[in-house]
C-alpha cells in the first residue's frame, strides 16, 4: 500500500496480529521491505508488523538530491502517525539502524525498544572519499557494476555459493534500487554522526552483528554497545552484513527472545 508522507508516496505493508504490539522494520541501503521475509513467520503471530520502503527504495518515491537521516526518520515517524501508531519497537539493519538511532534520540518516548543490526553510529572523515567514489560510480554507471562488490560485503563466500535463490532475491533488490535513491541515501549515511550522543538513548536496546561483517564490523557495534546504557550485544557467527538472511534462525531467536 502507498500513503503520502512529507510530499512523497511511501510504500508499506502492515501485517500480523492486529492486537499485538507494533514492530517497525527498516531495511538497508539497496534493499526494500522484502528483505525481512525470513523474519515474518516468527513475528506475525504475536506482533503487528510494519515494513516500509525507505524513500529512494522499493516502491516508494525516489526524489533527486541528497537526503538526510533527519528526513528518513521523519518519513518513518510520518508513516507511524498516519497509521495512528503511538508506541512501537524499532528493528533496523544497516541504514535502518542509523535511522533507528535518529528516532531513538528524538522520539524515545514512543519507542518500546530498539534493535540495531549490522550498523554503525559514525562515518569517519577518512571514508568520505569512498562514499564519493560510490556515489560517482552509481551516477555514471548505474547499479549493475556494483552488484558483485555489494554481495561480497553482505554475505560470506559460503552463503553466496550455497544459496543462489536467496542471493538472487537480494540481487534483484539491488538492481531495482533507483540510482537517485542510492545516491540520496548514501549522502545521508556518509554524514552519520551519532556516536557521542548514544548515551542519551534511554530505552532497552539489542545490538546484533554478523561476526564476519566487513562493512560495519563488530567494533562498530561494540562502540554502540559501550554507549547505550541499557543495551546488549549479540554477535552471530558465520554471518556477514545481512545476518538476518544469512543466519535467519539464530537471528530470529535472538530477536524474539528480546522482544518477548
Amino acid at each position: 500500500m502507498k500513503i503520502e508522507i512529507n510530499g512523497l508516496n511511501i510504500n508499506y505493508e502492515l501485517s500480523g496480529n492486529e492486537d499485538g504490539p507494533v514492530v517497525i522494520m527498516s531495511h538497508s541501503l539497496c534493499t526494500n521491505l522484502d528483505m525481512w521475509y525470513l523474519q515474518m513467520a516468527v513475528l506475525e503471530p504475536g506482533f503487528r508488523v510494519l515494513r516500509y520502503d525507505t524513500r529512494g527504495h522499493g516502491h516508494s518515491d525516489a526524489p533527486d538530491g541528497a537526503y538526510t537521516l533527519d528526513q528518513l526518520a521523519d518519513d518513518a515517524m510520518g508513516l507511524l502517525d498516519a497509521l495512528g501508531i503511538d508506541r512501537f519497537h524499532w528493528v533496523g539493519i544497516s541504514m535502518g539502524g542509523m535511522i533507528g538511532q535518529n528516532v531513538a534520540l528524538n522520539h524515545a518516548d514512543r519507542l518500546q525498544s530498539l534493535v540495531l543490526c549490522d550498523t554503525a553510529a559514525i562515518m569517519p572523515e577518512d571514508v568520505q572519499p569512498l562514499w564519493e567514489e560510490r556515489i560517482s560510480a552509481a551516477k555514471n554507471q548505474g547499479m549493475q557494476p556494483m552488484v558483485k562488490e555489494i554481495l561480497q560485503r553482505w554475505f560470506t563466500q559460503s552463503f553466496l555459493s550455497k544459496y543462489p535463490p536467496e542471493v538472487r532475491r537480494i540481487t534483484d533488490q539491488i538492481l531495482e534500487t533507483p540510482v537517485t535513491g542510492y545516491i540520496g541515501c548514501s549522502e545521508a549515511i556518509r554524514r552519520l554522526d551519532y556516536l557521542e550522543r548514544l548515551s542519551e538513548i534511554p530505552i532497552p536496546t539489542l545490538i546484533i552483528v554478523g561476526e564476519e561483517d566487513p562493512g560495519t564490523p563488530v567494533e562498530a557495534s561494540e562502540a554502540i554497545h559501550a554507549r547505550i546504557p541499557d543495551s546488549q550485544l549479540n554477535i552471530i557467527p558465520s554471518a556477514a552484513h545481512l545476518c538476518n538472511l544469512e543466519q535467519a534462525e539464530s537471528f530470529n531467536k535472538i530477536l524474539m527472545d528480546f522482544l518477548q
Binding site: 569512498l130 561494540e222 554497545h225
Partner: peptide
Amino acid sequence: EQIGNALTQHEPCKQSGGNS
C-alpha cells in the same frame, strides 16, 4: 573492507573494544 577497516581503526570504536 575500506569503510569497515576505517571503523575498526576509528579511535572511539577501538577504545570500545572489549566492553561486549
